[in-house]
Design a protein around this nucleic acid. Structure first.
Lengths: 391, 391
DNA sequence: ACAGCTTAATTCGCGCCTTGATTTAACTCG
DNA sequence: CGAGTTAAATCAAGGCGCGAATTAAGCTGT
């Protein structure tokens, strides 16, 4: 693995190799001919690179296509077992760990509870490490067969060169989690915000592979947004972006925990919804958690009008994003977003339509996230996978 | 000009050539050594490419650097006269045309009035063509020495493959302007929205060359935003984006001409400001135009509080953009933006600070656009220039 | 003033890459 | 079972960038 300068002939070869690997990954079983068309490379080059990859065990032949008068073309695919990836989702109340093969079928998962009041990096790191060894022993996958670990962290991620990371929400010191994990594993670590990983899951697996640009709105305890443009490239500011929750929606409105007033978060964040519901005279039975309380409101808002209002606010903010970014798709996710969207997606669409320009809205689709809570885990696991495809 | 496939060795050469040209352009006079460092290429390759470029007359030597004991390094620069670019800004009341050499010094300009009530493509096209021939004859620059024409159009630009264009604001048919111009010139045409061109001007010339990401907020008769991320790449949705003016700022608030309610535009767009001023009891003398009326309000808002309110709204929306995108810089431009910002930029900054997360705000700077009305012309002219640098 | 030193810039041979053409392999059809 | 057809592998050629060596051009100290 000689690290060559970019721009040299050698790096060109690596680029083409990675281009081919990528094409092969996304077009499932493909013939060499199909790869020529997909990559734009010549038959000779495709043949050479494929031979190399087969030699390394990365690519295998998978049957052949019936012919009509000539030699049949053999189909190729990436060997699913030639490597594995791990995805980790650090949530508010639990940590989920998943082990996948290269075709992203889940081989094992683990679940570790997390006290919502204690998010210190030590607790998180120890649970991640315990879950990691659990899934590895359960499947008897050796550590060196794992290409890397992708970790989804709530809130914006601050990346400083040298792979340090901090979660804005948990008030972590930028370096701590990486260091703590390093004590237990040498595998490559990749971090990203939860919104980004959910977005990745959606775009890699659910029909969205061809989507040039998308916005993922993650509605949970608070609101996060991730913007994707240009294929799989994730647009993100230098200091971690996507904190859409504190955009002003009602100037001079409700106070928000961020200290400002009228933030989107204070209206459509789960806490904001529940607060507004109580203030409007709604009654929440017992001391249930946020999730069941919100589900109850979605089911019957007791005539407070809070539900319709919430859908309107959410739609308006989505409409604003459509005007600003004109994405091909808007994907609504997060536990609260799924809850609201499952039942009332049309109301949200309608509000978005009312608050966006006609042409922009017409070129955008608003859909519900097609994965459940495991979306972030899958999306996180694509982080090392992408590194693998980029060689 | 053999059009080669990408990924081949030939395209590698062209890539490196363009990389070098770009580096040379942005680091003014540079020695071969400096270019080695900037491009990452070897001395041999830099020498070869430079020799080619000098042979073509694109690059010239410009003095040499004093040495301390060795052969002095010669400085290189792009020959300013080896090509020219034209920038056109189609405004509400006038069309500006500028002719520049490759170092972007303006050689000539032209100005054509436009009836604000008549924006039909025919009128615009004829004025552009007349201005074009005016600047060319004035400077005796032959047409084939012009690399291309960049045109800045108000509102979002809809680009469909095949170089057709339409301005959302003027309700143009997507193809008309291109066709009409084709009748008068064969030069390559490049279109972009005014917000994008102003952003380009700012990032290419005013210290921002190294800025990885920026947001340009253009406040005029309405509000537009452009988002830049990753060097000079302009992020833009498929159907033209940046219509930030119709983001909801005050849910359920003032009616906006777009049919919605509470839009940013209805509060901080020039028309919105004047309306609110009148409603608050302010008096506008005579039948002055928007620009002088707004200037008067900025000077003295007659105790209505509309000015402070406007600054607060503007700042809040900027704060929202900071949270969402975390750009390195925010640049406020447009005639109304310049007017407000020249006097009260600190009030805007303050409001943005109050409405954004601490860390995000701390990593962003908010500045006034450093060019005047000619910003869009200069920025538009960089469109063909960029094509030139990309070979 | 001149040899010696230092640094720029060029030249040359090498390895790497891709490519189009040619050859071999594999299968169908009459 | 051989002709025809298409897939895949092989081969020689051309391009490119790189490192090492070479030449060019100016300082410096005696």
């Amino acid at each position: 693995m000689t690290q060559r300068r970019p721009g040299t002939a050698g790096s060109l070869g690596r680029d083409n190799r990675s281009l081919l690997l990528r094409s092969l990954y996304f077009s499932a079983p493909a013939s060499r001919h199909a790869l020529e068309a997909a990559t734009g490379l010549s038959a000779a080059s495709v043949g050479k690179v494929v031979r190399e990859l087969v030699g390394e065990g990365v690519v295998i032949e998978a049957g052949s296509l019936g012919s009509d008068g000539g030699r049949p073309r053999k189909l190729l695919r990436i060997a699913p077992g030639c490597g594995h990836v791990v995805g980790v989702d650090v949530g508010e109340t639990r940590i989920r760990i998943g082990l996948f093969d290269l075709s992203m079928t889940e081989l094992a998962d683990a679940d570790r509870p997390l006290d919502p009041r204690r998010h210190d990096p030590e607790a998180v790191a120890s649970r991640i490490l315990s879950g990691l060894s659990a899934v590895l022993t359960k499947t008897a996958v050796p550590t060196d067969a794992v290409l890397g670990i992708g970790i989804s962290v709530p809130g914006a991620v601050r990346q400083t060169p040298g792979k340090t990371v901090g979660s804005q929400r948990f008030c972590w010191d930028p370096i701590s989690l990486t260091e703590l994990l390093r004590a237990g594993t040498d595998l490559p670590l990749h971090f990203d915000s939860q919104a980004n990983t959910v977005g990745r899951a959606e775009l890699w697996f659910d029909s969205g592979r061809e989507t040039p640009s998308a916005v993922v709105v993650l509605l949970g305890t608070d609101v996060e947004v991730t913007i994707i443009s240009g294929g799989s490239t994730v647009h993100s500011g230098p200091a971690g972006a996507g904190e859409s929750g504190h955009t002003v929606l009602v100037a001079g409105g409700r106070s928000c925990r961020c200290g400002s007033k009228g933030c989107l978060d204070a209206y459509v964040g789960a806490e904001g919804i529940l607060d507004r519901f109580r203030e409007a005279g709604g009654v929440i039975a017992g001391d249930t958690d946020q999730e069941t309380a919100l589900a109850a409101i979605v089911d019957d808002d007791q005539g407070t009008g809070v539900l319709a209002e919430t859908l309107g606010y959410l739609g308006a903010s989505i409409g604003g994003l459509i005007n600003l970014l004109n994405p091909t798709r808007v994907i609504l996710g997060g536990w609260a977003g799924s809850l609201l969207g499952a039942r009332d997606l049309d109301a949200i669409r309608d509000a978005a339509r009312r608050h966006s320009l006609k042409y922009s809205f017409a070129t955008t689709s608003i859909d519900l996230c097609s994965f459940g809570p495991e979306a972030a885990v899958r999306g996180a696991a694509t982080l090392p996978l992408e590194h693998f495809l980029n060689d």
